[in-house]
Design a protein around this nucleic acid. Structure first.
Lengths: 195, 195
DNA sequence: TAGTATATAGACAGACCTGTCTATATGGTA
DNA sequence: TACCATATAGACAGGTCTGTCTATATACTA
């Protein structure tokens, strides 16, 4: 277990990130201290600081990992839902969103939550939260343009607003059908834009 | 200045709440400690604990005060914008939202932010964040019903999603026109629902 | 087996936090 | 003026946090 190539147990770095991921998302980056992560991961404090320069660097690493994973999943889920339903990828966005919201540990968007908690734009993780949001907006715009709809920038922005709104409403209102309502609204906007 | 009736200086309690309000909203409830609030308000620590049982009680008092103030402002602003523009109160929601977003110290919704930070549903302030969100949803539903539109629950939910989404997009994307885009989308949804 | 890279457990220091408390000051009223 | 309610400044205690460090263990390779 001293080498990352061992197949029987994840390396220390991965165990730290896994523990941090669960704790940070469920409880927030400020409420979870280093000792909690150490206890959860079974990694020694010195190893943690060998892999990550500081707690802030760990937060940034977590956000970076989440950013990559979520982007990949988002694109894959949209394609999967679009294929399964035969509907436009623009509507499939909201099916993917619903799939995410319905996860048992859903507590909103890690990037929104972290931006709220970190506040400080100089924090090493803050820019990642913004990059993530921008990547979503860009992806939606790409899908809208691919659909050859007029005023793509406006429609993309409105769909982004619906998506972010459904995320927050699902979190704050315990609303199981926020994604469905957002999808219905998106359908109207897309239909109207097509005329 | 030992009595609240003094007209020359706010009483200690009000000064604490004013300082807490600014610091908590700008920097988050976890990042701001009691000593910061004491320094900002010029109130002695013992006075602070005479007025508020604990930091958590102060947070709850702040959220309660914000809840009352915001509700009042929201309804007044909608009425004001509806009268000035001659448009439906349902669209005026987004004019009021824009007015709020354009404030120089805008950093999203204090209730969403606090729900994210507090996490714990047992925290004395947590229920207030939920009550606040529910009050907004109820108010939107009331306006939709007053407009005699079909499927009021669905439309109200969609307008709520647009409103929350615009709030988050404005915060995360530095998007000055999120409220305007949400208003344009709302106009389409309302027009479609009317047919 | 020896050496090395990586790991473990956890003590430690200093900073910061929340809440308690002592001593004193201030302002209003009888 | 005396009394009382409320205020001030800030020391203090104990807990928690982040990051540094000592001592030791483990696993792999030559």
């Amino acid at each position: 277990m001293a080498r990352a190539s061992s197949a029987s147990r994840p390396c220390a770095r991965d165990r730290i990130l896994a523990a941090a991921s669960e704790l940070f998302y469920n409880e927030g980056v400020h409420s979870v201290g280093i000792d909690r992560i150490i206890a959860e991961s079974g990694v020694a404090k010195m190893s943690l600081y060998n892999h990550f320069k500081s707690k802030d660097a760990l937060i940034a690493a977590w956000l970076d990992e989440q950013h990559r994973g979520w982007r990949q999943w988002f694109q894959e889920a949209i394609a999967r839902h679009a294929e399964a339903s035969g509907e436009s990828p623009l509507l499939a966005i909201f099916d993917a969103l619903r799939e995410w919201i319905e996860k048992p540990n859903f507590r909103g968007c890690a990037f929104i939550n972290s931006a709220v908690e970190l506040v400080d734009a100089e924090h090493p993780g803050y820019q990642i939260t913004l990059d993530h949001q921008q990547a979503i907006a860009d992806h939606i715009l790409t899908l809208v343009k691919a659909a050859n709809l007029p005023n793509p920038e406006d429609l993309a922005k409105q769909l982004l607003i619906l998506m972010q709104g459904a995320t927050v409403v699902a979190m704050m209102h315990g609303c199981p059908n926020a994604a469905g309502q957002a999808k219905a609204a998106a359908a109207v906007l897309i239909e109207t834009a097509s005329q």
